[in-house]
Design a protein around this nucleic acid. Sequence first.
DNA 1: GCACGATACCTCGTAAGCGAGGTATAGCGT
DNA 2: ACGCTATACCTCGCTTACGAGGTATCGTGC
Lengths: 177, 177
Amino acid sequence: MLELAILGFLYDAPLHGYVLRRHIAALTGHVRPVAESTLYPAIKRLEKAGLLVRATEPGAVAAPRHVLTLTEEGGRELMRRLAEPAQREITDENHWFTLLAFLRHLADPAAQAAVLRRRLAFLEEPASFFYDGDRPLSAEELDDPFRRGVLTIARATSRAELAWLRDTLASLDGVGR
Amino acid sequence: MLELAILGFLYDAPLHGYVLRRHIAALTGHVRPVAESTLYPAIKRLEKAGLLVRATEPGAVAAPRHVLTLTEEGGRELMRRLAEPAQREITDENHWFTLLAFLRHLADPAAQAAVLRRRLAFLEEPASFFYDGDRPLSAEELDDPFRRGVLTIARATSRAELAWLRDTLASLDGVGR
DNA sequence: GCACGATACCTCGTAAGCGAGGTATAGCGT
DNA sequence: ACGCTATACCTCGCTTACGAGGTATCGTGC
């Protein structure tokens, strides 16, 4: 998820670590902050894998900067990660939102639609958080107000997302034809 | 999050690892599956910390079971984790939902309300996923349909949750008076 | 002249999660 | 007799993440 965000931001423009950190904080920081000690090693991993290169520049304001530029391989890797996300990227909202934030980079509308359809299939599966044996329980069946909250909120999210998915898929299909 | 779920389920009744695993899978598995190689070490951690005890029972169906029972210290630890959750438990929906699933165990309505109010404060902070400098962008200002989706979905979730939070807080305050 | 905050990057030890793989038992179909 | 599936638990090595702490530069206010 972090690596995807790094690749996604760098695809737009070369950045140095500090600015990248602020971009990532803006994107997911209110929900899941990223520590510096997580970001810098992640950058090194991606550099070692040949997905980005670092160029040292004298710091405009303070210490020298390491400007990060995506390599061609890095661009290809981003496309792979966007087009063929792991199942976790589809099911976990945190991951999914990060993927959506950069899905526009995947130029092909059909490929974008294919990813959305995987999310659609996931949301259409009957699933709950609470079960009576194998039968999913609805909010109305629960006494516990907190568990009822979970289902109420999840249902509202699911509805909004299904509507958006169907809308967006329709317009992507329109472009494709 | 995983440890909270273990403590939460065991607070209801002693369970052995395999059943616990299915409970956890039902609760969060569709979004974020938990591997066996994560669960069993987690159980051992909690045992080592004195939060639960294991008793070997001949397996009813197959191999011998390790029935897990919460200790008093384990019960107290659960209450602590429910009453004073880390900020991540409040902001990250995955964590938050897990917390909500067991918040009923916290018997005091005032303590429950205090936790809900922390979530309320978080949701009331103006925050976006996308910014123009420091200014949060609204869905309407975005060209990118996927980023627009993120904001549309997040807004629907936020609305539903705010309504539920205010309702539930009102009825908790009613009980407290 | 100097403390302070912001910029900019880094290392280290520890914790947590995961996939791959292993061990066993019991029951069922063929 | 044999394989298959479900139950039930475990270890190992690898990767990722995090907090604590460190280093250095520059501009601003006092």
